[in-house]
């Protein structure tokens, strides 16, 4: 199915997309995109401007992920960025991969990888306890 010209306004989107699912994704891309402007800029500020990214190591990451506020912040970032990014890749697959079999294969591969990455990210954020951080973090907190 060839995609028609991209809808320009909310009313266009309502008229273009026959299913509410696509309309919901259209709205989601704008809402999550707006939130991600602030989430990603804050993330980049903390790790690239307020710190020398070339010196990021285990101690630095562990000391950040030890803070509940960072865990919560990064969880929202992970969730919104992954959904926004994977849905964007899905749009690209639907735009550029024409053959149905290849299109399905590309989507299956994408969603599988995204699922694994989401689980890895959640694990890194929430299963990472102080006791596992080693001497480096304890030294930082003394």
């Amino acid at each position: 199915m060839a995609r028609a010209a991209a809808p320009r306004t909310f009313r266009d989107a309502q008229a273009t997309y026959r299913t509410n699912g696509e309309l919901a994704w259209w709205v989601f891309m704008r809402v999550s995109g707006f939130l991600l402007v602030f989430l990603t800029f804050g993330h980049l500020w903390a790790n690239n401007m307020a710190f020398n990214a070339g010196q990021i190591d285990f101690d630095y990451v562990a000391s950040r992920l030890a803070q509940p506020s960072v865990k919560v912040y990064d969880s929202f970032l992970l969730l919104f960025a992954l959904l926004h990014g994977v849905n964007g890749l899905r749009y690209s697959i639907e735009d550029y991969i024409q053959r149905p079999q290849r299109r399905v294969a590309a989507k299956v591969a994408l969603f599988t990888v995204a699922g694994i990455v989401f689980v890895l990210g959640v694990m890194a954020l929430w299963t990472f306890s102080f006791s596992e951080m080693g001497d480096a973090v304890r030294a930082l907190n003394e």
Binding site: F58, V61, A124
Partner: peptide, 15 residues
């Protein structure tokens, strides 16, 4: 993003 989450999640294996 996919690569970034994977490489940062390596912190799980400790110092």
């Amino acid at each position: 993003l996919l690569l970034h989450v994977i490489d940062i999640s390596l912190v799980m294996w400790g110092p």
